[in-house]
């Protein structure tokens, strides 16, 4: 993948000053996320369900944070409130001091799967964001090509998404989210549906891309290895109600490569997360049993 990040591509990335100006300079001063005293409650036919309870979280600009927890712990819900899809019932969510009220191109989203527009070619998918931002068709296309080169899919610009493998589709998804030069990248289990080999490759790709842009990343996952491998910080959540129970600093050196996965430091962090998750999962089981 390193061959992909060639010098001319880098130059091309830096060329799109108009879009960049809109987004500010990612990785320097923009992309500070602040979640304060947030509860998110859903009304269901059987009563109200507390998805997130009293969440407090600050993410510094350029930080890579993983939200880790068992399924159903509200980590996606919390991310969706940062994205602007789910309003918090109580408390507030701000990005760079501004309250989040709706989704916006400053917060790029990458979804688990099937989120590309199947009727648009790969290039049209990536060009969509810039077009919506009001740049001309030509400039949008050139932005799209730049980002497709960045994820190594320049050759597939005229293909339709359903002709690509799952891993390639997710790379297009990442290129599409980045094409708006967002200050924050929100990723909701983006590699969850991929096979193990592809997943590891994608994680390495993502870190290389992130090194280029250094924007803030919030990454939702239930995979401990993934969380430790990728992030600067792991925010561990517990299930029902979803609460933040730990905030673990990941002090592993960067750039990170696959060999890290077997190092003692990695193992120690993994064990720490594993113990927390295990305790929480057991708790959740017991609660479910009580309810059932």
């Amino acid at each position: 993948m390193s061959e992909v990040l060639m010098n001319d591509n880098r130059l091309a990335v830096l060329d799109h000053s108009r879009l960049r100006a809109k987004a500010g300079k990612p990785g320097t001063d923009r992309g500070r996320i602040s979640v304060r005293d947030v509860d998110i409650v859903f009304d269901t036919p059987t009563g109200s369900h507390i998805a997130v309870q009293n969440a407090n979280l600050t993410v510094r600009p350029g930080e890579f944070v993983c939200l880790l927890g068992p399924s159903g712990c509200g980590k996606s819900t919390l991310m969706n409130s940062i994205a602007g899809f789910v309003p918090p019932t109580r408390g507030d969510v701000t990005v760079d001091g501004e309250a989040v009220t709706e989704p916006g191109p400053d917060r790029g989203m990458v979804f688990q799967q099937h989120s590309l527009f199947p009727w648009k070619t790969v290039k049209e998918n990536v060009a969509f964001g810039p077009l919506m931002a009001g740049v001309g068709q030509n400039e949008a296309n050139s932005v799209a090509r730049t980002f497709l080169s960045l994820v190594g899919l320049a050759a597939f610009e005229n293909a339709y998404p359903n002709t690509l493998s799952g891993g390639m589709q997710q790379r297009v998804g990442i290129a599409r989210a980045l094409a708006n030069y967002p200050s924050v990248l929100l990723m909701d289990e983006p590699f969850g549906a991929l096979d193990a080999q592809t997943r590891i490759m994608m994680q390495e790709n993502l870190l290389e891309i992130w090194r280029e842009f250094h924007n803030t990343v919030v990454f939702v996952t239930h995979d401990i290895d993934e969380a430790v491998f990728l992030s600067d910080r792991i925010v561990v959540m517990s299930a029902s109600p979803g609460r933040i129970i730990a905030d673990i600093k990941v002090d592993l050196p960067r750039p990170r490569e696959q060999s890290l996965l077997t190092s003692p430091d990695f193992m120690a962090l993994k064990r720490q997360c594993l113990d927390l998750i295990r305790k929480e999962t057991l708790n959740a089981f017991q609660q479910q049993n009580k309810v059932g």
Binding site: E3, V4, G152, A154, A155
Partner: peptide, 24 residues
């Protein structure tokens, strides 16, 4: 499929993944 844009590294990787991950 359209041909690649010249860089051999990219092409190789893409070919590899295309055959590896996508029999399609």
């Amino acid at each position: 499929m359209e041909e690649t844009d010249g860089s051999p590294g990219v092409e190789q990787i893409i070919r590899k993944e295309a055959t590896m991950a996508s029999p399609m």
